[in-house]
Every structure is written in structure tokens, then in C-alpha cells.
Write a protein that binds this DNA or RNA. Structure first.
Lengths: 144, 144
DNA sequence: TAAACTTGTAATAATATTTGTTACAGGTGT
DNA sequence: ACACCTGTAACAAATATTATTACAAGTTTA
């Protein structure tokens, strides 16, 4: 199992809107860069919009950033596109046997430990902004 | 998406082998506590065995611990049951457009950031032993 | 106003993944 | 010989992910 690529696509979209800021970033344009279907892009953009990260309007071509990229962390994107539910990165087997000391306690014991690990992951994502991503792309472009 | 419950089942199995150390932990017994099919347990035990965490032999009933529980961290179990491939917790969309500056750099830019986050998660799992889990279960049992 | 374009969204399909089930070969001990 | 176990493969069922198609409704331009 792995975390949905909606997350990496979301980052891609935000970075490309920025780099294409003098142009119009339609779902078709973005889809051409991500290499997927425009409807997929529109769905993800809808999620980014719901989180207040981009501005889009029905009928009006193009998505714009709604915040400074330096204020958008990877964690914000991760939450926006909803790839992992809160406290549910790890799934725990259901209905262990209540007649067994391990069965009746395992969930309560394990879930907080999993939460700590999930938070460590999310904190790490919070340390990087999409601006950092854009800067890295620009740097890579200039070198090569 | 979420990480396979093989992980939580693996922890459950190890904890129960310990708590049942005076008895015989057959796959059927363990399956009864986890509440799943014995074949599922045997498969997971096979993985734990492959990682050197338990001892089992064909034909001989029962699994035994192969290491001190205090030396087995949740990270060891996590690796053993193979729920997440190395560096692949996050999936990244394939074949972005090489004719776009974002498309041709996004993977190289993002993958290392995802790795850092994954390592933060794994480090957190490494801070807890299965013995800690067992002790917590015992504590909960004594209180109630 | 009509035509050409867009976004938003739903329905559907294709694919992959996870979990459970069944079956049985082969080992062990009585 | 019998009863029991583990190891494993084949299969089925349930779920999740991604892509595709279609179209209503908004906007712009001519």
C-alpha cells in the first residue's frame, strides 16, 4: 500500500500554476504536464480550492494561487487532497477477540503509538513549503 | 489509503505469543484472538520468521519468540511484514511531461522530501518495543 | 444571441490491492 | 496408521485508486 498520488499531483499543480503564472492554467494544460485526464485535475483542484489554496471559478478558464506559496506547506497539500484520514494512516484489524487479554486491549494500546508515528510524518511534511519545491525545480533547470 | 493491518496483526501475534508463553500458540489459537483465518496468521508468521523474530517449524505446533521482546521494535515488525516498501510510502504519479519544466523535475524534487517524511515515521516506530506494548496491555488488564 | 470555451460533477470502467477462503502437500508425534 | 500441525498456492470477495466519458451550467467573444 502506498499514499495516493493525488498528493504528488497536488504539489505538481501548485508548482505549475506558479511557474506558469503569466499564462492561464486550465485543467487541460495542467493535465498535459501531469499526464493524466483533465477531469482528474479538476477534481484535485476542487480539493485544493476547498482548502483555500487556489482560486477557480466555473466557466472562467484557469486556476490561480490563493495564498503565497511560501505559506503553503506540503502538509497543507496533503490535508487538502485528503490522502490520509486523521489518525488513520495505519489500519488496525477489526474485532479482535474480547475474550483474550491481548484481543481486548490491542487496539487501545496500539492506536496512540500509530498516531505518534503519523504525526512525526506530518510534521516532516510541514517543514517544507511548495515554494521550496518550486525553487528546487528552478535550480535544477538552471544547472542543466 | 492506509497501511495494511498486517502490521497491527503482526504486533498482536508477538504480544500474544509472549502472554501465552506457557501455552502453545498455534495458528488457530492466534487466529481466534486476532479474529481471522489461520492461513492469514501462518502467512504473517512466515514473514516474522523470515525476519528472525519468531521460530516455527513445519509440523510442530506453535510459534515461539526468537528474540527478547525488548529488542523487537515496532519498526522491526513493520519491516518484517512488509507493509511499506523502502522509499515507497508515498506514490508519485508516473510519466509527467518531460517537455514541461515542472513535469521533468517534479519527481526528482519530491521523492527525497517524501523519503525524509517516511524516515521520520519509521524512526518513531523504532522508539517503541513490543515489550512496551505487552507491558501496556498488562497494565490495562490490572487496572480494570 | 449563438458559438466556443471553460469548470464542476456524476457515472462508469479498468486496474490494483487487500483480505479471506479453501485445499492440500508434507512434516511431526502418538 | 492416525490426528494434528505448518507452509503455500490458487482462488474469491471486497475495497480503493485512477482513468474515462458525458454533460449541465457558467463565461467570453464575436
Amino acid at each position: 500500500m502506498s499514499i495516493s498520488s493525488r498528493f504528488s499531483v497536488g504539489i505538481h499543480i501548485l508548482a505549475l500554476i506558479e511557474i506558469n503564472k503569466n499564462g492561464i492554467s486550465t485543467s487541460e494544460f495542467l493535465a498535459g504536464s501531469v499526464n493524466t485526464n483533465p477531469a482528474v485535475i479538476r477534481k484535485i483542484i476542487g480539493m485544493l480550492k476547498g482548502a483555500g489554496l487556489v482560486k477557480v471559478q466555473p466557466g472562467i478558464a484557469g486556476a490561480k494561487l490563493a495564498m503565497k506559496l511560501s505559506d503553503i506547506t506540503l502538509f497543507d497539500v496533503y490535508k487538502a487532497v485528503n490522502v490520509v484520514q486523521e489518525k488513520e494512516l495505519f489500519s488496525v484489524h477489526e474485532n479482535p477477540n474480547p475474550d483474550c487479554p491481548v484481543g481486548r486491549n490491542i487496539q487501545e494500546t496500539i492506536v496512540p503509538l500509530f498516531e505518534v508515528a503519523q504525526i512525526a510524518l506530518e510534521k516532516s511534511l510541514g517543514n517544507v513549503s511548495v515554494e521550496d519545491v518550486v525553487n528546487d525545480i528552478i535550480k535544477k533547470e538552471n544547472i542543466s
